[in-house]
Simulated assay, not measured.
Amino acid sequence: MSARRDAPLSGATDQCPAALLEVADCVLFDFDGPLCDLFSGRPASGVAERLAGELRDVAPVVAASAAGDPLALLQAVAKHHGSSPATDRAERFLTAEEAEAAGVATPTAYALELIGALDAGGWRQAVTTNNSPAAVIRFLERHGLSVPAVAHIHGRTSEPGLLKPDPHCLVRALESTGSTAQEAVMIGDSPADCLAAKVVGVPFIGYAVNGRKRRALEDVGARCTVPSLRGLLEAARRRVRSREPGAGPPAAGVHG
């Protein structure tokens, strides 16, 4: 059942995305979507097919139901088999596939520049994703980025039940960055991202590249969405300029 459309989301109601970013001290990124198109070079349908083939001898019923979404397939294995060799095998196989995909993944427009601007502007950063940390690390290293540090990459663990919308990775990210929920903002593109942010009280900016994505986010209570990261990049760069010598005091509502 969808959440009421008039339900507030972590204080984000009626606030524009740039304002949410400017008053935050910490940014939590989802990975596949806001930072890159993970399966742009190795399509998710092919990954799901290969994962299903890997599971035919240990989880034949689940493998037969594969429908093109490798993460959903992993979750189905975990649901039917719990903590088991089948689930472990699925997680290891998907981790390897995601790392390969990250090696050729297309960065989201303005994402790499946004990471750099946030670093220059003094924001703490972390990645909170249902994908493997290995995939995030490979993507960032491929582009010569050390921010966020490996210690602030919080991805899938050996327990698929802790995937978003469970807030487990967000809680870990807040702890690792020394941030409170009120000091942070999350940028995500899925209803699961939005729901996880709601649970811990982190304001949420939805990255919605089309109307379908935007409606899906609105259905779970998102009030702040952007079709591009360009506006957030411009907001981050304003804060960087405000810190330059001779720039004068920062604009009202902006702090470092």
Rank of each mutant, 00 (worst) to 15 (best):
D37I: 07
A48N: 08
S45G: 08
S45D: 10
R50P: 11
R42E: 14
P34R: 07
V58T: 05
R56S: 15
D32V: 11
A48K: 05
S45N: 09
C26M: 04
P60C: 13
F39C: 02
F29G: 00
A52E: 04
P34H: 06
P60W: 12
D32H: 13
C26T: 05
A48G: 08
C26Q: 02
L51S: 04
D32C: 12
R56M: 15
D57A: 15
L38C: 06
C26W: 00
G41H: 09
L35Y: 04
A59T: 13
D57P: 11
F29E: 01
G53D: 11
F31T: 01
L35F: 06
C36L: 07
G46F: 07
G53I: 08
C26N: 03
G53L: 09
G46V: 11
D30K: 04
G46D: 13
D37M: 08
V47D: 03
G53T: 07
L35V: 05
R56T: 14
G46N: 12
L38Q: 03
L55W: 03
R42V: 14
L55S: 02
A44F: 10
P60T: 13
A44R: 10
D57M: 13
D32A: 12
V58K: 03
S45V: 07
D57H: 13
V27C: 02
E54F: 07
A44H: 09
D57G: 11
L55N: 02
S45L: 07
G41S: 11
F29W: 04
A52L: 06
L51H: 03
R56Y: 14
G41I: 05
P34C: 08
R42N: 15
L28T: 01
A52W: 03
V27Q: 01
G41E: 08
D37E: 12
E49A: 15
P43G: 11
V27G: 00
E49P: 07
L28P: 00
D25I: 06
G41A: 10
A52S: 09
A48P: 04
A44N: 10
L28D: 00
L55E: 01
D30F: 02
D37F: 06
R42A: 14
D25R: 11
A48E: 05
G46E: 12
S40V: 13
F31Y: 03
D37G: 07
L38H: 04
C26Y: 00
G53E: 09
L38P: 02
G53W: 08
F39G: 00
A52R: 03
D37V: 09
E54N: 08
L51M: 06
P60Y: 14
F39L: 04
D57F: 14
S45M: 06
P34E: 07
C36F: 06
L51C: 05
V47C: 08
G46I: 09
R50T: 14
R56C: 15
L51K: 03
P34A: 08
D37N: 10
V47T: 09
F29C: 00
S45E: 10
L38I: 05
L38K: 04
F39K: 00
E49N: 11
F39R: 00
R56P: 12
S45I: 06
P43T: 10
D25E: 13
G33L: 01
R42Q: 14
R50F: 10
D32K: 10
E49F: 13
D30E: 06
